[in-house]
Design a protein around this nucleic acid. Structure first.
Length: 593
DNA sequence: CGTCCTTTGAAGTGA
DNA sequence: TCACTTCAAAGGACG
């Protein structure tokens, strides 16, 4: 598997990632220092282009590795670095900073063998051995006694995954079974969610609760499973998934806190019927918000930690837990009347992209000067497209499991339940809107930026994901990793776009040229969604042109970030580049009205 | 303080 | 079945 050796399909994705970061880091640094937003767009643009090319061509991994250093000045970086540097140091002989492609990986998790759901109290802080790598979320329970949570893990909870349970300690076995795949230097984006390698756990502070067996006798660090122990990562067919240990399973366990609300009572089994398997558990944890974990263990009440999935506005204020009473989520326990008022808000399970965003956001933020989530999300969206199918498939799989878990936890829950809870503004722009409409609607000044290439070329990517979000990730996996190749036509990136009226003062439009091959038709054949992409594409003179309309500082938008070109497509990109390179940047002001 | 913005995907609703 | 809407995360921006 790619993940294991870092080879194969991973290359594309990995490279992309690396490239982008490295460059960005440098660029960003430069920019931040000198620039500024004031910098002419042209300049920025050109610089971006140049760098992107350079970057793409250059060895990514190395650069990526360096990146952290370049950003040393970054506060966040420093901070983060401190947090995990030590921890990682052990894991990776070389040192974390050298190689991680995904330095930002938010979570380093230490194996906590306890059943996530069972963890006493479920949320015993101690149980949460979870390191946030890049972000301040580092939560390394020094104390922890976590293990207490080891408490009897109901067989049913663990059962499925732990099938090959170790007689001695089922949990341990699970841990071992975990696909431990990631090499530090080749970390997959999911890493945060899925800690494949025990090594990741290694912590400066080895969890006291770890069972000795897992720990490396020498280092005290969790031992790396023997290769034979490693299970294929997501190699299973969807159906099979449930039966095997999920890569995240350990994650979940340690967390002690399930992603979805778990009754404070701990795993008293509010959901007796729920047969949670490790994989699900892992998912649960994966979604676990770092923030939830972050707080000093001691400060948290064991039972008081609100589950991410459950957010009751009213209750939100009370961290504690009354809101989370087991009864509440479990089955509709709360009296009808109050229920309405107090009923905890059960959040929707995160979809694949959301999971991806969660994981990668910090990284992107660190890479960029941008802080605006909207801008970050655009980048993430592009990056998402640039992910290989395999990579996306992983997220789809995770998302699928999340949904599964969610459904089990909240059998009666429906997405509809949340409708109207959040007053959302309606998107005025209807999907059907025509290009013209769109342009009209958008009242923004837009700088149309011909993608010089890379910006929009995202190309590389496999749009695959969107095209077919694999119902069964495995299927996706099965498919050739090479994303781009197959879908050259879709190279067309998603259009960053949109929005109307608004608050934007300046909008930059990125006009990406659609690949020639691409049909004039919508940029994204894939999405059935009303997404803006379609209209946008047409917006420009070029049908497939994606437009980025947003006040995103170019300084922070590095092409590579947006969509790291896979080496695979480099050539193609260049060709495109040449085509459009000559085109001038046009400043377009769209009259609002 | 509440909403917007932005992304993709899942799920709900209505026709 | 299709088209469309809402919500999920996140955090700066805005009114």
């Amino acid at each position: 598997m790619p993940q294991l050796n870092g080879g194969g399909g991973d290359d594309l994705g990995a490279n992309d990632e690396m490239i982008s970061f490295k460059d960005e880091g440098e660029q960003e640094e430069k920019i931040s220092e000198n620039v500024s937003a004031e910098r002419d767009l042209d300049d920025v643009k050109s610089s971006l282009v140049n760098e992107s090319e350079n970057n793409s061509s250059s060895s990514d991994s190395e650069q990526a590795e360096r990146r952290p250093q370049t950003r040393a000045d970054s506060e966040s970086y420093e901070k983060t670095r401190d947090y995990f540097s030590e921890a990682l140091r052990r894991q990776q002989d070389g040192g974390f900073f050298k190689s991680p492609h995904y330095p930002s990986y938010p979570f380093l998790i230490m194996p906590d063998l306890t059943n996530p759901y069972l963890s006493n109290g479920s949320l015993s802080p101690g149980a949460r051995t979870y390191l946030q790598m890049k972000w301040p979320l580092l939560d390394v329970p020094s104390s922890a006694g976590i293990k207490d949570s080891r408490s009897p893990t109901p067989g049913h909870l663990v059962s499925t995954h732990t099938k090959p349970k170790d007689p001695k300690n089922g949990q341990e076995k699970m841990f071992n079974n975990l696909p431990v795949v990631q090499h530090a230097h080749h970390v997959h984006p999911l890493t945060p969610l899925i800690t494949y390698s025990n090594e990741h756990f290694s912590p400066g502070t080895p969890p006291s609760h770890l069972s000795p067996e897992i720990l490396d006798p020498k280092t005290g660090i969790p031992r790396t499973p023997h290769p034979s122990e490693l299970s294929p990562y997501y190699s299973l067919s969807p159906g099979a998934v449930g039966s095997i240990a999920h890569p995240l399973s350990w994650f979940m366990q340690q967390q002690g806190q399930p992603m979805y609300s778990i009754p404070p009572g701990g795993f008293r089994h509010p959901y007796p019927a729920l047969a949670m398997n490790a994989s699900m558990s892992s998912l649960v944890s994966s979604r676990f918000s770092p923030h939830m974990v972050t707080p000093p263990p001691h400060s948290l009440h064991q039972t008081g930690i609100p589950h991410p999935a459950i957010v009751s506005p009213a209750i939100k204020q009370e961290p504690g837990g009354d809101n989370i009473s087991p009864s509440m989520h479990a089955k509709s326990p709360v009296p009808a009347k109050k229920e309405e008022d107090k009923k905890p808000h059960i959040k929707k399970p995160l979809n694949a992209f959301m999971l991806y965003m969660k994981e990668m956001r910090a990284k992107v933020v660190a890479e960029c000067t941008l802080k605006e989530s909207a801008a970050i999300n655009q980048i993430l969206g592009r990056r998402w497209h640039s992910l290989s199918r395999e990579e996306q498939a992983k997220y789809y799989e995770l998302a699928r499991k999340e949904r599964q878990l969610h459904s089990q936890l909240y059998p009666g829950w429906s997405a509809r339940d949340n409708y109207g809870k959040r007053k959302k503004r309606k998107r005025e722009n209807k999907p059907d809107s025509k290009p013209e409409d769109f342009s009209v609607r958008t009242k923004k000044q837009c700088v149309q930026y011909l993608p010089s290439e890379k910006m929009c070329d995202s190309p590389a990517s496999s749009h695959g994901s969107m095209l077919d979000s694999p119902a069964t990730p495995s299927a996706a996996l099965a498919s050739p990793a090479a994303p781009a190749a197959t879908h050259s036509e879709q190279a067309q990136p998603l259009s960053l776009t949109t929005k109307p009226e608004g608050r934007m003062h300046h909008h930059f439009s990125l006009l990406g040229k659609a690949s020639e091959s691409s049909s004039s038709s919508s940029s994204s054949s894939s999405s059935s969604q009303p997404s803006i992409s379609i209209p946008i594409g047409t917006t420009g003179s070029q049908s497939n042109t994606p437009i980025l309309t947003r006040p995103i500082p170019f300084t922070s938008l590095h092409p590579s970030i947006l969509s790291p070109p896979s080496p695979f497509h480099q050539a193609a990109l260049r060709s495109h580049h040449s085509l459009f390179q000559s085109q001038p940047l046009s400043l377009v002001t769209k009259p609002t009205e």
